[in-house]
């Protein structure tokens, strides 16, 4: 198994892990809010729905330049949140269904546009789904005299943006996640915070697009945050743990992508997939062994409690 690591090169694999870790960190900063607001599936919806934004950016600029893509995606991400809210409020449709209607419609629109744009710009559908993080080190620009992959820079910038927003708006995000009605009466617009969060999610989704593709953004958004939620009761700790777990999943994912298939005699596999799987494994561990909310702990407590009931003298 360890022979598969012989071709390890820090110049290549290091950057891959860095890209993955930054993607995970950027997503994991926002994840706890999504989980607490019961908006986990919104992450999935937005990452599907950004497709038309990107397609329009392609059609308009006729290139794969980053900035128009981000703008297009941010706008569409925001629209997804707005349309979902409209349908839920005016149509009185269940929240999940509203999301479903909006993102499938937008995704279909995006597909149509992408097919139109396909011969102008080269788009590989596989790449759309699961990214191509392995190619990260090949596309570099020079920063301060060092060769840094473009994706790492983009993801680093987005991670920084998310960190800034989370720090700046810490208490606003906290109160609007917990009690939006109260927040509004205190003058903190819940709606504004909601849309801010959704825009950040959209931007993160697009930035991660190239690294891990559009489905796996959801993994990075939700799973580390869920794992952290099983381990702590404090929001700040939850955010911190979420980032740590995310970075760990990224590292673990890349390592296992190389090593695990070798056990069965295959070549290495897609890193993004293994990153999501690693996050899942870490979640299961946290869910089982969490010190206060873990399943094993609760089982033991219940047994002890039942025994206490039966044995206690009256």
């Amino acid at each position: 198994m360890l022979e598969s690591l012989e071709s390890w090169s820090w110049a290549l694999d290091g950057w891959i892990i860095a890209a993955g870790a930054l993607c995970a960190a950027a997503s994991a900063l926002l994840g706890p809010y999504l989980v607490l607001r019961k908006m986990s599936m919104m992450g999935d919806a937005i990452s599907h729905a950004v497709l038309p934004g990107i397609a329009i950016a392609f059609l308009v600029t006729e290139s794969r330049a980053s900035l128009p893509m981000f703008i297009g995606a941010a706008i569409v991400g925001l629209l997804t949140a707005i349309f979902t809210e409209w349908i839920r409020r005016f149509g009185k449709v269940d929240e999940g269904a509203s999301m479903g209607v909006v993102f499938t419609g937008l995704f279909a629109l995006g597909l149509v546009l992408v097919v139109q744009a396909a011969d102008k710009v080269d788009l590989d559908p596989g790449c759309v789904l699961y990214g191509a993080i392995e190619l990260t080190p090949l596309d570099t620009t020079t920063v301060l005299g060092y060769d840094v992959p473009r994706v790492v820079i983009t993801l680093g910038a987005v991670a920084l943006l998310n960190l800034t927003c989370v720090l700046l708006f810490y208490k606003e995000l906290k109160i609007t996640s917990f009690d939006p009605a109260l927040a509004t009466t205190l003058g903190i617009s819940s709606r504004l915070m909601h849309y801010l969060l959704m825009t950040l999610v959209a931007i993160t989704a697009v930035a991660s697009f190239e690294a891990v593709g559009n489905i796996l953004v959801v993994a990075m958004l939700i799973v580390p945050a869920a794992a952290a939620y099983m381990l702590t009761d404090r929001l700040s700790v939850m955010i911190f743990l979420s980032v740590i777990i995310g970075i760990a999943s990224a590292a673990l994912g890349h390592l296992s992508a190389i090593m695990v298939p070798a056990i069965f005699g295959f070549g290495s596999t897609i890193t993004a997939g293994m990153m999501a799987l690693s996050a899942g494994v870490l979640f299961v561990v946290a869910a089982l062994c969490g010190p206060r909310h873990g399943i094993i702990i609760k089982l033991i407590q219940r047994r002890r409690f039942a025994a206490k009931c039966l044995g206690a003298p009256h």
């Binding site: 989980v35 019961k38 908006m39 986990s40 599936m41 992450g43 999935d44 999940g96 789904l129 699961y130 593709g213 489905i215 796996l216 959801v218 993994a219 958004l221 939700i222 799973v223 869920a226 939620y229 099983m230 992508a257 298939p261 069965f264 295959f266 070549g267 290495s268 596999t269 897609i270 993004a272 997939g273 293994m274 990153m275 999501a276 799987l277 996050a279 899942g280 979640f283 869910a287 909310h293 399943i295 609760k298």
Partner: peptide, 27 residues
């Protein structure tokens, strides 16, 4: 079994299983 709500459970299964599927696809 956990304090997580249904939407989070859906998100976790969706992404983790899909990730596993992608990994298998890579193989």
């Amino acid at each position: 079994l956990t304090r997580l709500k249904e939407d989070t459970a859906l998100g976790i299964i969706l992404s983790v299983f899909f990730g596993a599927g992608v990994a298998v696809l890579g193989v």
